[in-house]
């Protein structure tokens, strides 16, 4: 039903924009899964989207709106770039890449903790703290690209000097997608499933999210757990940023996070905050993103159509949820 509503809505928008409806839908499909190279491209988007979504599950469990994922991705990318620039002539490129992963995750985690501390200590709503820090992170990247890390000769929006190929995670020609990135994402999915379902931390996050005062009476420390959730979410977002640098772009560019942080929020909402649906919805959203790249080239339409479809899907689901639970009268969660 959701699909039908959204399809009608999108078609109406396309008619409004004077675009050929069927052609657009067809283009979205072939543009995303029409060939192996397209599919590989989708997977390249799927990786950061899934990582960010996994991270968001921790913060949503405890009832925090971690809107700052976007900035956490960027700080991960900055951390990784810093390491790779320092180790550019190292004899052990593998070790440098490993260090980049660690520092990248750390960068994302610290950025998230900053938002977390602003919330728990400074009383700043996490939505505004996270959002503000996103813009700050964007400014930081621009400053680095045009300042200390500018290309010799001319600084430009195209980013920093590309790294030596030894500092790339390899991408086999037939694969067109880095096995390291895919592997790390699968590990992150498995680890998140494990933590959320089988550890005390996961249970504690859910308890505090469900009822902070009862959790406090059970001996849990809500403030500290919030920081844990933020830190874990930031680390995963930082990992996504690191992979954007080491796998996809091989340099730091202004749009390194590509809005995947915001998009991940939609993924998790559509997945109804359930991990098991995240990889599939992330794949679908990634496909929409990749498919829509064709729109400006072929039909002179803006590629933001994918965002409209994604938003419409989530909105429809939210409304249907509210409608159903309103009728059943069984809403007891907040």
């Amino acid at each position: 039903m959701v699909a039908a509503i959204v399809l009608v809505f999108i078609s109406a928008i396309l008619v409004l924009a004077g675009a050929p409806v069927l052609e657009v839908h067809g283009l979205l499909v072939t543009g995303a899964v029409g060939s192996w190279s397209k599919l590989a491209q989708v997977l390249r988007v799927w990786v950061p989207l899934t990582l960010c979504s996994c991270g968001l599950l921790y913060t949503f469990q405890i009832g925090l709106w971690n809107i700052g994922v976007e900035g956490q991705v960027m700080l991960g990318a900055i951390g990784a770039t810093a390491v790779l620039r320092l180790g550019f002539d190292s004899a052990l490129p593998g070790a440098v890449l490993g260090a980049a992963l660690v520092v990248g995750m750390l960068g994302g985690a610290l950025w998230a903790l900053l938002a977390g501390l602003l919330k728990t200590w400074g009383g700043v709503n996490e939505i505004f703290a996270g959002l503000g820090l996103n813009f700050v992170a964007q400014g930081l990247i621009l400053w680095l690209i045009f300042g200390p890390w500018r290309r010799p000769g001319v600084a430009s929006m195209s980013g920093t000097e590309p790294f030596a190929e030894s500092l790339w995670f390899p991408t086999p020609a037939v694969w067109r997608i880095s096995p390291h990135a895919l592997g790390l994402t699968l590990v992150a999915l498995a680890a998140t499933a494990l933590v959320l379902r089988h550890t005390r931390l996961g249970l504690a996050l859910r308890a505090v999210g469900g009822n902070p005062s009862a959790s406090y009476l059970f001996g849990l420390k809500p403030g500290r757990l919030m920081l844990w959730a933020m830190g874990l979410a930031g680390a995963l977002a930082g990992l996504a940023g690191t992979l954007q640098v080491t796998v996809v772009y091989h340099r730091l560019i202004p749009a390194i996070s590509s809005n995947y942080g915001y998009l991940a929020l939609l993924v998790v909402m559509l997945a109804d905050y359930r991990l098991s649906w995240v990889p599939f919805i992330a794949f679908f959203f990634a496909a929409l993103n990749v498919g829509s790249i064709q729109l400006p080239l072929v039909l002179q339409l803006d590629s933001s159509l994918s965002g409209v479809i994604q938003g419409a899907l989530v909105l429809t689901v939210l409304l249907i949820h509210a409608w159903n639970s309103g009728k059943a009268g069984t809403r007891w969660t907040t």
Binding site: H198, T199, R200, L201, L203, A204, R206, A207, G210, N211, S213, A214, S215, L217, F218, L220, W332, T333
Partner: peptide
């Protein structure tokens, strides 16, 4: 439900949460 229990958690989850000697893995 306001102060004592977490409405969304099950009985088993409450038991795990109040385990006197908790281990990290539940």
């Amino acid at each position: 439900l306001d102060e004592g229990l977490v409405g969304s958690l099950t009985i088993a989850e409450h038991c795990a949460l109040t385990e006197p000697h908790p281990s990290f893995r539940i």
